[in-house]
């Protein structure tokens, strides 16, 4: 599982979504695709090219698209809705809450362009609150895959389960840290690296950064466990509790606001079950701005180096627990 940083392949999560929906379209005639004028970018176009009769354009009108997907689900179809995360989770939140989730309808949502790494488009297009607002709605399943393979597997997995599901991923190529054969089970965290001194719990792009951080610390004789918490809801509470008990310190890392995201979800479990010191890496209650993905991730502190710094703050020289 551990890959040396320099040799990693970089691929688009969006392509994992695109490849998955083509597979789904082939094997299940109930699968339909809805697009809101971003079909090339979200890869919905790949589905349209193969199965034009099962692709439906809804124009720049996300609220209608989400409720139309609800209607299609009521008729027994499995609608996939794709757009940018800000528009899907923000513009259509009430539609997702009241029409889709309250009625527990089988609508699958693909929120592209999650995170600050959207880059030059700036704050309007950088979805940094999407996980928080999707996580709090009952009946929702929320997945934040870490790379191409995991996005493909997550898309296939949400198609198989019944109920509303949201898959969130970014715009840019990200390091491939899993492979075709890496296990993926909704709601079951993936331990990507064993370690007993501290645990990093990450999702999305930040999984690769957590792995890099663990490598850096390994050079200092510190063994960090790295947990890929791809499913944010339902959360794998057992994996979190085990990490708290066995390593005594947790650093979370996500490309999302610190409020309401992965770190908050982990903290909710930790403080109620086995309190241990924690640090959280993510967006510090701020909107983004234009810049390259690298510049923005560095400026706002979502890097392997920041995870290392946070880890060090939890570990003193002797590896004992720091005071909170």
């Amino acid at each position: 599982m551990q890959t040396s940083t320099g040799k990693r392949e970089w691929r688009l999560c969006r392509d994992g979504f695109g490849d998955a929906i083509i597979e789904l379209g082939k094997t299940d005639r109930r699968v339909v695709m809805l697009g809101a004028d971003l079909s090339e970018s979200t890869r919905a176009l790949w589905f349209k090219e193969k199965y034009p009769e099962r692709f439906f354009s809804f124009g720049i009108a996300e609220q209608n698209m989400l409720c139309a997907a609800a209607g299609m689900a009521l008729a027994g179809l499995i609608p996939f809705v794709s757009s940018y995360g800000v528009f899907l989770s923000g513009r259509a939140w009430d539609q997702i809450r009241t029409t889709i989730c309250y009625s527990n309808l089988n609508v699958k949502m693909a929120g592209a362009h999650g995170g600050i790494s959207v880059g030059p488009d700036g704050a309007t297009h950088q979805a940094l609150e999407d996980c928080a607002v999707m996580r709090v709605v009952p009946n929702m399943t929320l997945v934040v895959p870490c790379d191409y393979h995991e996005t493909r597997k997550a898309t296939l997995a949400v198609a198989k389960m019944y109920g509303p599901a949201y898959v969130r991923y970014g715009r840019e190529k990200v390091p491939v840290v899993t492979n075709e054969d890496t296990p993926f089970e909704l709601g079951k965290a993936l331990v990507m690296r064993q370690g007993g001194d501290i645990t990093f719990i990450a999702n999305g792009y930040m999984v690769s950064q957590a792995l890099d951080a663990a490598e850096i610390l390994a050079g200092e004789g510190i063994e960090a466990r790295v947990i890929n918490m791809h499913t944010l809801k339902p959360l794998d509470r057992e994996a979190i509790i085990r990490a708290a008990k066995e390593t005594g310190r947790i650093v979370t890392a996500e490309e999302h606001q610190l409020a309401g995201g992965l770190g908050a979800a982990v903290a909710e479990v930790v403080v109620q079950t086995y309190p241990v010191p924690m640090r959280m890496i993510g967006m510090p209650d701020s909107f983004g701005e234009s810049g390259t993905p690298e510049e923005l991730l560095t400026k706002y502190g979502m890097t392997a180096e920041k995870i290392v710094t946070a880890a060090r703050s939890l570990l003193n020289k002797n590896g004992e627990t720091a005071t909170v």
Binding site: F56, Q63, C67, A68, G71, A73, T98, T99, S103
Partner: peptide, 19 residues
């Protein structure tokens, strides 16, 4: 289907009719 937040039912109808 559950309704009550106004403005959403016609879209649900569109989805049903398309399906």
């Amino acid at each position: 289907v559950s309704t009550g937040s106004l403005g959403q039912g016609l879209s649900i109808g569109v989805g049903l009719a398309v399906a």
